[in-house]
Structure formats: structure tokens, C-alpha cells
Amino acid sequence: MRNNEMPHAPVGPAVNKDEEALARPFVKCLLRLIRTQDSFGLWEGNSDAELLAEFIITKEQQCATPLIGDPDSDALWRLDMFYTAVALAIE
């Protein structure tokens, strides 16, 4: 392959990895927990992927987070939701 050529996209049936991941029982449980916390309906129009975006951080975001200090209340809430979903999955 020459330097200026772009590789071809894979041929075959496309699998939507996001939809596959969102169909997992643990993720469904986590989404239910998040949506039950929305008492004012602020997240009603958001997709499941948009709600879970807050739970995923990039390597750059992780490096920018200070090691010393108190985490913000949103981070603590996300941890609480995640571990509650873990406990429900174990139960």
C-alpha cells in the first residue's frame, strides 16, 4: 500500500458496538438507576449513550484530575450509581 492510499473499510455486516454494549444487563441496570434519579425530567430527551458519557473519561482527563483533594459531588454521585448497579448485579 502506498503512503497516500487509505485502507479500505472492512467488508461484511456492520455491528453496532454501542448498541451491543447498551444491551448488556449491567448497563441497563445502571441506566435505570440514573433515570430514576432524574426527578425533574432534565435527562428525558437524552439517549442512553449520552447519559453514560459522563462515566467514561479519557486518558487526558484522568491525567488532568488532581491526585490530592476532594472529588466533586458529581463524581461521587457517579461512583455511587456505578457501585449500586454492581451490588444489584451481584444480588
Rank of each mutant, 00 (worst) to 15 (best):
M1N: 07
M1T: 08
M1S: 12
R2K: 08
R2H: 10
N3H: 11
N3M: 09
N3W: 11
N3K: 14
N4G: 07
N4T: 13
N4S: 14
N4Q: 12
E5A: 11
E5T: 06
E5P: 00
E5C: 06
M6I: 15
P7W: 09
P7V: 12
G12Q: 04
G12W: 01
P13R: 09
A14Y: 13
V15F: 14
V15H: 14
K17F: 13
K17N: 12
K17S: 14
D18S: 10
D18Q: 08
E19C: 05
E19R: 15
E19D: 15
E20K: 13
A21V: 12
L22H: 08
A23W: 01
R24S: 06
R24I: 02
R24A: 10
P25S: 13
F26M: 05
F26K: 03
F26D: 02
V27I: 15
V27A: 01
K28D: 02
K28N: 04
L30V: 03
R32V: 05
R32K: 10
R32H: 06
L33A: 02
L33P: 01
I34V: 13
R35P: 11
R35M: 08
R35C: 10
T36M: 07
T36N: 06
T36I: 08
Q37Y: 01
S39R: 11
S39W: 06
F40K: 02
G41H: 02
G41L: 03
G41K: 00
W43M: 07
E44V: 00
G45D: 10
G45L: 06
G45P: 00
S47G: 07
D48E: 14
D48W: 00
D48G: 12
E50A: 12
E50G: 00
E50T: 04
L51S: 04
L51V: 00
L52E: 06
A53R: 05
A53V: 07
A53Y: 03
A53P: 00
E54V: 06
E54I: 00
E54L: 02
F55R: 01
F55Y: 08
I56L: 07
T58Y: 03
T58W: 01
K59C: 03
Q62N: 07
Q62E: 11
C63R: 14
C63T: 11
C63G: 10
A64Q: 13
A64C: 07
A64S: 14
T65I: 15
P66A: 13
I68W: 10
I68E: 14
G69K: 07
D72I: 02
D72H: 04
D74W: 03
D74K: 12
A75H: 04
L76P: 03
W77D: 05
W77T: 12
R78W: 05
L79F: 13
D80A: 13
D80I: 01
M81S: 03
M81Q: 12
M81L: 15
F82T: 11
T84S: 14
T84Y: 04
A85I: 03
A85C: 07
A85H: 07
A85K: 04
V86K: 03
A87C: 07
L88S: 03
L88W: 01
A89V: 00
I90C: 03
I90S: 01
I90V: 06
I90K: 10
I90H: 07
I90D: 01
E91K: 10
E91Q: 14
E91N: 11
